[in-house]
Amino acid sequence: MTPDFRIPLGDWVEVGLDWLTTSLEGFFALIRSILVGAYDGLEWLLAAPPYWAVIVVFAAIAWWASGWKLGVGTIVGFAVIVGVDQWSNAMDSLALVIIATVVAVAISVPLGIWAASSLRVSAIVRPIMDFMQTMPAMVYLIPALVMFRVGVVPGIVATIIFSMAPGVRLTELGIRGVDKEVVEAGHAFGSSPGRILRQIQLPLARPTIMAGVNQVIMLSLSMVVIAGMVGAGGLGGDVVASLSRIDAGLGFEAGIAVVILAIFLDRVTASFGKSKTRSSTKAA
């Protein structure tokens, strides 16, 4: 029972994709080699040293960012990861998350700043972000696979696209939410727009922007598993493998490692948003 009309959307997408992959082949190859290089380097940095050394470093970061409680919690958490034999996978996934987050933040924060400065940009960016965030994540994997071939790169690219939206939104929200009078004060004393952004808007919007970065990281982690489907390896690889083998034990072990990573990254980044400024309460 096919309807009388059929929009050939799928055909268009495929044609478009073919055109992209052929005409921009060099560009995609460049991205691919950059991402592979970054990933390999970071993965080596995390996986090459003995695991206890890496755990000590993580614990130190947690302690510095938040306090001794999180430091101790970090040691216990990562010890569990080692204990369930997911250390190497966890480091692979962490490397992927870090790369994807750095790229996503590098794109989304400036985009958010731009959107905050102009209603028109905001009106264009917003639906695109809605689209990117609500489109089922796995759909990105297919074109990413076509463009970047099997491996970790399509996983990273899909993760970036999926996780960018809250970065853009919360940056825009944060900057728009900065007390108008304070921004006016900047103008009134003859400050340039760039300087106002640097000295007033970004510092005051920082808690909100950091909440956005935190969300980007969380979404990246949730994509890690899905990225496993295209051969990104890491914890995702084991989850996908456990699914195909109906191996609940392995699935759970990989899953608990994801949870521990998530808690660690969330607490550390959340405390970056809060600390340092002595008080960001609005003058009133």
Partner: peptide, 17 residues
């Protein structure tokens, strides 16, 4: 604005950081 005219605001508009 730098040299001739400055301003005081109703809600002070100080930089909290």
């Amino acid at each position: 604005r730098q040299e001739k005219i400055s301003m005081v605001f109703q809600h002070f508009a100080l930089l909290p950081h």
